[in-house]
């Protein structure tokens, strides 16, 4: 709030008529925004917080039930806990990969190459395409009789090996489970959390990295163009080669943008929904169940096609998710921001 910056000063010596007029005018200008925010953001959040302590089905008055929703969420190993484990794998995979991919694309496009504009447009394509359209395309690619299996089949064929087609969107075998299998072992289903992300989940991760990386590429590209050429000059005078200049000049200068990208990427990753809704509905065996998908299902009574509406339970899970995202963001700030000031 810009106007409030001057109010402490004003209060000290009392408001003159003119200052009061200015303050009123200021708030008047702000009021449309403040009103909308108060009603549609602050008000809604407050109401959601209230119903998270109740049992509420949209049509009958909320029944206060204390911390029951929170307790239920934190003990539901087949639901909320499961979705948190899934989203944990997702975040720690997708965020680093998409950030690295974005940086790589940006570095390539930052060079003076022929057809730069053309490549920028092509690379940015997946980001401006609706996620449902991308999902539909990948749905075909990932078919058991689809192109991805076809490609693997051909590549394996080159080496005379056999590729047994994978049902990419319906294969719950986890990464660590596959590794265990390779050594003749297995991880039983009651230790599902040790199985790692399922093949289907990793297929969706790949798709999302492909979609999101170009969005962040644009940010990196803008930041790269802001790095003062004089720094590179100074570095080269000091005898730095290309690689050293990248590690010691480019990367540190990009640090604030990297923080932004990692934080935005993390928040986005925690909230993944549409791809799951469209491609897997949380399956197979709940290995792609995400918190937001679960919240949607409980809030609108869509679990298994038709269940009771549990708005209160959904709100409680939403607040737990918000807290988790908040903690993650704080940690990231601490790690990435430390050291930013010195540049």
């Amino acid at each position: 709030m810009a106007a409030s910056a001057k109010s402490p000063v004003a209060r000290k010596r009392g408001l003159t008529a003119r200052e009061r007029d200015e303050a009123i005018t200021g708030y008047l200008f702000l009021s449309p925004y403040l009103l909308v925010t108060a009603i549609f953001t602050v008000g809604i959040i407050a109401f959601a917080l209230y119903i998270s302590f109740t049992s509420y089905n949209l049509f009958q008055a909320p029944q206060f039930n204390g911390l029951e929703n929170y307790q239920k969420a934190l003990t539901d190993t087949n639901g909320f806990i499961r979705s948190l484990v899934n989203i944990f794998w997702y975040v720690i995979t997708v965020v680093p990969f998409q950030t690295a991919a974005a940086l790589m694309l940006a570095l390539i496009l930052n060079r003076k190459i022929r057809g730069q504009q053309f490549f920028r447009t092509i690379f940015y394509g997946p980001s401006v395409t609706s996620s449902i359209v991308i999902s539909a395309i990948f749905l075909w690619l990932y078919l058991k009789t689809g192109y991805v299996n076809f490609m693997f089949d051909r590549i394996f064929g080159l080496f005379g090996a056999d590729w047994s087609a994978i049902e990419w969107l319906n294969d719950p075998r986890g990464l660590f489970q596959l590794i265990a299998n390779a050594f003749g072992g297995d991880i039983p289903s009651n230790l599902w959390y040790l199985r790692g992300p399922s093949i289907t989940w990793m297929a969706i991760m790949f798709m999302n990295i492909f979609t999101t990386a170009p969005t962040f590429m644009i940010m990196y590209l803008a930041a790269l163009q802001d790095v003062p050429p004089t720094l590179y000059e100074a570095a080269s005078i000091d005898g730095a080669d290309g690689r050293q200049a990248f590690w010691n000049v480019t990367l540190p200068m990009l640090r604030p943008v990297t923080l932004l990208i990692v934080v935005l990427g993390t928040i986005g990753a925690f909230q993944v929904f549409d791809q799951v809704q469209f491609l897997t509905a949380g399956g197979p065996l709940n290995t792609t169940l995400t918190p937001v998908y679960l919240i949607y299902g409980e809030a609108l009574g869509r679990i298994g096609g038709g269940s009771i509406i549990r708005m209160g339970y959904a709100s409680a899970m939403a607040f737990l998710l918000a807290i988790i995202i908040f903690i993650f963001t704080l940690i990231q700030r601490r790690y990435i921001e430390s050291g930013t000031e010195q540049y």
Partner: peptide, 16 residues
């Protein structure tokens, strides 16, 4: 009221 979740349990059992 929770028909969907009951049917879902059967579907998941078959899946396993």
């Amino acid at each position: 009221p929770n028909t969907g979740r009951v049917n879902d349990a059967v579907g998941k059992a078959l899946e396993r």
